[in-house]
Each structure stands twice: as structure tokens, then as C-alpha cells.
Design a protein around this nucleic acid. Structure first.
Lengths: 212, 212
DNA sequence: GGGGGCACTATCCCTTAGAATAGACACCAT
DNA sequence: ATGGTGTCTATTCTAAGGGATAGTGCCCCC
């Protein structure tokens, strides 16, 4: 069990962004004591893994030549026989991260991570653990500032909340102490704003956006 | 930055379960190269932290004498001035874990973790990262086997899926190539089974159950 | 200081949803 | 073979949803 430090840990970095690839390599070599190999495309990564198979960790950029998202991750994981494969991305969403992790990826690294955290994460993953930045995973989960919420007025949000609870316009009107026709109007304008065509769709959209 | 290995990392373990506390200490000392101090209650933990303040990590059992759940976590975090505090628990739910992490806990360690993962996690947290076992966090999240789906017939499930998409009975009828009154019947019986009183509620219930 | 936008109220009119009920057919198991 | 279940069809009736349109008061910004 070679885990006391990172000596001898071999990491393959596959990213088409030269600057990021080089700085990442430099950091991992200097600060983390890793042996690193870098390539700039998915196909090169596959080649490298086929040639010398003893990598402790493979970092794949989510959007790079030859890498078709989650599918690329799966191909690499199959090709390397359950070797530790992690996704690194500057743009991918929380959903993609969760999908990757559910498929058994070693981890998900947003490019917003600090160098220090990144090294810690890489070492953590190289030791066989699964990593994801919790703030990132939580971020889109609760998501206080929904793009949706901004588009709606206070009243419309209240009405929308009623919709998500399966209430009738009459009930909503009673709860908010306004008349039912007013609720109807809010409902209608709210449909337009969030692009729904009936209350169920509106409720589902609100739900998907993580509202309420 | 003393992070190459775990040498000198000081960990305070607070758990009233003797066996677990001792084995944990032994593991962390032997395998992880940590200096550990152990106590058996929350109050003792507070005392220790006040006396010698230079712990890299404090592990608090979620249910131990003097520790009142999340509140205990908060008190310890205040008392130690943003020192790294993690929760360790054999029983706590995912919700509790999420709450602790949202409050800025260093991590959440279920007692089902392997010794190896536990050491990795402790080292990871001692370096300032936030840890939680992703499988554990996901476990209660998706909830693959829905009790809901079993209660409904195939047709009713198809109709329910239509509801979640905000479709009208007429649209659902067209999609399934049956008459609208039939759809209405399925809708109604489905309401009874899942305890909904209108289509929006039914859609929300299906959504919450993770269906579709 | 006068638009312009927003929240609210309102009415008309049509469509859709939902409850109640009832009958027919197929399948499976006791 | 009989009864239960699931599926489909159907009719009638009431309640609710949703579109269109119109008017009032408020506040903010130019």
C-alpha cells in the first residue's frame, strides 16, 4: 500500500488546453510528488494507457478532441479495466458530474479548484477514493439564485409555489388573500415567463429548477 | 504547508464507543502517521481543544454524551474558531450529513467506511478539504426502487409519465392510442393509489419519487 | 411630471379536468 | 368456471383551468 506520500504515483493528464495541462503537471510534480504524463487528446490518452498500463489515475478533460462527454469516460474506463478515471472540466454542470460519479468515475474536478485542493484531490483519488468538491455539488443543488426566480415577480413566485403544491387557483387566492381572477392572471403571465403551457408543466419546471 | 505526508498532523477523536475509538486511534497512528488524542464525551473534547488548541482536525461522534447533534457541531466550530471539525456517525442520515457539511463541517464519516478510506478521508480533511463519501450521499438521493412504481399498473405508469410532462388527457390518449375517457379513468385510479388529488400533485409526487 | 411597467381586480367565454357510474373483454389463479 | 384484476370504452354532470380583454392604482425612471 503505497499511500504514505505520493511518491511513485503515476498520473495521466489528458487536456487540450496547453496552459492548464502544463501548469497542472508542474504543480503535481513539484508539490505533490507525482509522476505525470500529459497528452492533448482522447485518442492519445487511449494510446498511452494501452502502452504503459500502470497509471494510478487518469484525468480526462470533459471537452477535448475525441472525447465525447460521458461516453468518452465510459470508453476509457472500459479500456483501462476499471482503472481510476476522473473528469476535469471548466464548464460541465453538476448533472454531468453526478452522472460521471454514478458511473464510477474516480472523481470530478472543476477547473475552478485551487491548486492546493486539486493536488489534494488528485492524491485522494490516486489512493482509490472517490472525489468531488462538495460545494460544487451542492451549489446547483439548492441554488438560491435561480435564473427562473429572477424573472418572476414576488407574487408570481408565491403563486408558482402554490402550483407546485397542486393547489387550485381558488386555494392560492385564499392563501394569499387575493381574488381568484388575480391568481389566474399571475398564473398566465408566469406561464409566459417560464415557458409553460399549463400548471403541471409550470410546477415541473419550478421543481426542476430546484425552487421551493 | 505540511502536507506531503501526515507526519505531525494532530487529530482529536471524541467518541464514547471505546472499541471504535481505540481502533480508530490505532489505525490513524500506525497507518496514517497521525498524532491522536481521544476523549469519550463532548465536554471533554471542548476541554481538550481549549487546553491545547493546535489540532488539525476534530472528529465528533454524532451521538455521544453532551453532544446534541448538529448543535454540538456548531458549538465546537465556534469554540475552536473555525477549526476543522468533522462528524463521525454510525446512524445519522444523509440529511444530517448534508446539514453538517452545509454548515461548514470538515466532513462526514459514516462508520461503515473501510479503515483505508477512513484514513484517507482523515488525511484529506486534515489538509483543509471537505470530505463526504459520495456513495453515501447519493444513496438516499436517487432511491432506485420506488415503492410507488410497484403500486401502479403499466398503463397507469404510462399515463403518469404523461402527467409529469404536463400533457392533457387528450394528448396522452393520442400518444398511447387509446380514448380520452380511458385516460381519465387511469388518471383517477392513479390518484387514489398515490394519494394525489389532481394532476399537478400527481406529477409532483412522481417527480419526488424520482420517477421518469 | 408624465410615461411605462407592474400588481391587482374584473368579466366573458370556451375548454379541460375530475367524479360517478356502468358495461365489455381478457387474463390468471383458486 | 368463477371471481378478481387490469384494460378499455362510454355518458353525464359540475368544477376548474385558461385565453382574451379591460381598467385601476402604484412606483420608478427619464
Amino acid at each position: 500500500m503505497r499511500n504514505m506520500a505520493s511518491g511513485g504515483m503515476r498520473v495521466l493528464i489528458a487536456d487540450d488546453h496547453d496552459l492548464l495541462r502544463d501548469t497542472l503537471q508542474a504543480f503535481l510534480n513539484a508539490e505533490g510528488g507525482f509522476e505525470t504524463v500529459t497528452v492533448a487528446s482522447f485518442d492519445e490518452a487511449v494510446e498511452r494507457v494501452e502502452r504503459d498500463a500502470d497509471y494510478d489515475l487518469v484525468l480526462l478533460d470533459y471537452s477535448m478532441p475525441g472525447m465525447s462527454g460521458i461516453e468518452g469516460l465510459q470508453r476509457m474506463m472500459e479500456q483501462t479495466g476499471h482503472k481510476r478515471v476522473a473528469i476535469i472540466s471548466g464548464t460541465a454542470s453538476r448533472e454531468i458530474a453526478e452522472e460521471a460519479l454514478a458511473l464510477g468515475a474516480a472523481g470530478f474536478l472543476p477547473k475552478t479548484l485551487s491548486a492546493k485542493s486539486l493536488i489534494n484531490a488528485v492524491r485522494f483519488m490516486a489512493m482509490g477514493e472517490q472525489y468531488a468538491p462538495l460545494e460544487f455539488m451542492r451549489a446547483a443543488a439548492d441554488d438560491a439564485s435561480n435564473p427562473l426566480a429572477d424573472k418572476l415577480s414576488h407574487r408570481e413566485l408565491q403563486v408558482l409555489e402554490g402550483l407546485t403544491q397542486g393547489k387550485s387557483n381558488k386555494e392560492i387566492a385564499r392563501d394569499l388573500d387575493i381574488r381568484e381572477p388575480t391568481v389566474k392572471l399571475h398564473v398566465k403571465t408566469l406561464y409566459r415567463k417560464i415557458n409553460a403551457s399549463n400548471r403541471t408543466q409550470a410546477a415541473m419546471i419550478a421543481k426542476e429548477a430546484g425552487l421551493f
